[in-house]
Design a protein around this nucleic acid. Structure first.
Length: 461
RNA sequence: CGGGGCGUAGCGCAGUCUGGUAGCGCACCUGCUUUGGGAGCAGGGGGUCGCAGGUUCGAAUCCUGCCGCCCCGACCA
């Protein structure tokens, strides 16, 4: 993609409404534009990141056996009256009346709807287990939206819902999602620590939230430094092997980790040796719940079991804040110059900077490389603007593409381009002909990496 | 919803106290010179001063009402 044909409205100065880093960088980098408090348009660059995250989430959900579907943003109020949440949810729920005076609402979540679907179509235990999910926009009319897309009113969420015959089956479904979440965050290049959570208005009794560490996190977290030593890479797992899945859950839940609401200082000090007690701020990027028959009972989701008896289904729900993750990742990965995208979610893999636009040698070298890289399947953004070097460097650093190829008359004399790694700042002169191979190899080396920095660098920025 | 603040050109701001018909920097357009970390010179375009009333010969400025946005708190993925 040539920058001259792209739409990337970067801002030189910080918009005054943005306080926290991710919000500032997203606005400055031309990723989003605010339309109202907590409501954003996603510009091309921002959308690319959003889609990458969405696709990784989708891939891992599919891998864990969940089935994608799509439910509407608007829901009939009746469904919510049946579960009793129409009144319970309060003003956070955006209520709408259509031309026939029917009450609708912009869905803040989908337990009622999916449970109703299952109730209608599932009659036998033979149709179980079932895990249905969708990735859809939600709306919660927050009292005070803030932090850009991290706490917007409209947000993109992946929400999955499991349905099982027995409590044991339901818990296995919960465990599967737990493991799928570990894998998902690892695939995004993140370490998200699972912490036992309160169940809040969604209800139920088994619940964990997943937090990534960042200075600007909304809640205080306390955990065992042993989490640092865990293998966070996207390990393989047989999701049907109940014992194996349970073992992973066990492994990640025995170490102490709690948000401030659940924190118990006495236990913390008993369970964690002094040198390993870590405290910091965390951003919640996922939340899973198991709630038994809390929704299936009022909505009549029951099946006949093998014994011919009617049983209410055991269900759980599993959310990942997809749009929130865009901001959260930036909070966890940036420097003074701008965003530092983890490879898997970068909007483009490589940026090419032409330092002397209009110079025949520079132009042809850049164009040749651009075409060759695209042909090789890489996502490339070629800065072909006729601006000064400084502006190009600053812009490329701001939008945080993992690799930059800098081409100017100076290096071209010797037939080389300069390849810069955004995360480390490391630069290397590479022969023009070798750039493609060099990038392909570098990419492979970094792609699957769960960055060491993610956990240990907390507090250093 | 309580407390605080802001709304003037695409962005960041001055001007408001003390009323006189709108300005600065960046960005943008044209030309020339420049070109490895946000260039220089010259010329140029762009604003119903958030909205609605009111006071006044005259309102960005004073008064009243409304709207929007941000920050802190209580609340949340």
């Amino acid at each position: 993609m040539r920058l001259s044909r792209y739409f990337l409205p970067v801002l030189r100065e910080d918009p005054k409404e943005a306080e926290i880093v991710s919000h500032r960088l997203m606005l400055r980098g031309g990723m989003i534009r605010q339309e109202a408090a907590g409501i954003y348009s996603w510009l091309p660059l921002g959308l690319r990141v959003l889609k990458k995250i969405e696709n990784i989430v989708r891939r891992e959900m599919d891998r864990a056996g969940a089935l994608e579907m799509l439910m509407p943003t608007l829901q009939p109020a009746d469904l919510w009256r049946r579960s009793g949440r129409y009144d319970d949810y309060g003003k956070e729920m955006l209520r709408i009346v259509d031309r026939h005076e029917r009450d609708l609402l912009y869905g803040p979540t989908n337990e009622e709807m999916v449970t109703d679907i299952v109730a209608r179509f599932v009659q036998s235990y033979k149709q179980l287990p079932l895990n249905l999910y969708h990735i859809q926009w939600k709306f919660r009319d927050e009292i005070r939206p803030r932090f850009g897309v991290m706490r917007g009113r409209e947000f993109l969420m992946k929400d999955a819902y499991s349905f099982d015959l027995t409590r044991e089956d339901g818990e296995h479904a919960y465990n599967r999602m737990f493991v799928a979440y570990l894998r998902t965050y690892a695939a995004l290049g993140l370490k998200a620590i699972p912490m036992r959570a309160e169940t809040g208005p969604i209800g139920g009794n088994l619940s964990h939230e997943f937090l990534i560490l960042a200075e600007t996190g909304e809640s205080q977290v306390f955990f065992d430094a042993a989490f640092h030593e865990k293998d966070w890479a996207a390990f393989d797992i047989d999701y049907d092997d109940r014992a194996a899945v349970a073992r992973v859950v066990e492994e990640f839940t025995t170490m102490y980790a709690a948000t401030e609401e659940m924190h118990d200082n006495v236990k913390f000090e008993q369970q964690v040796p002094e040198g390993r007690r870590v405290s910091g701020r965390g951003i919640e990027v996922g939340h899973i719940f198991f709630f038994g028959d809390k929704y299936t009972r009022p909505l009549g989701a029951k099946v006949l079991g093998p014994d011919g008896k009617e049983v209410y289904l055991q269900s759980g729900s599993y959310g990942i804040g997809v749009s929130r993750l865009v901001g959260a990742i930036i909070e966890a990965s940036h420097d003074e110059a701008g965003i530092v995208w983890p490879e898997p979610v970068a909007p483009f893999q490589v940026g090419i900077i032409n330092l002397r636009q209009g110079d025949a040698a520079c132009d042809s070298a850049c164009e040749g490389l651009h075409d060759a890289l695209e042909k090789a399947g890489m996502e490339v953004l070629y800065d072909d603007a006729s601006e000064r070097a400084g502006e190009k460097f600053a812009r490329m650093d701001l939008i945080g593409l993992p690799w930059q190829v800098i081409i100017g008359p100076r290096g071209l004399k010797d037939g080389v381009a300069e390849v810069k790694h955004r995360a480390t700042g490391a630069r290397e002169n590479v022969g023009l002909e070798q750039v493609g191979a060099y990038l392909a190899e570098s990419w492979r080396a970094h792609e699957g990496m769960v960055w060491q920095g993610r956990l240990s660098s907390y507090g250093s920025r």
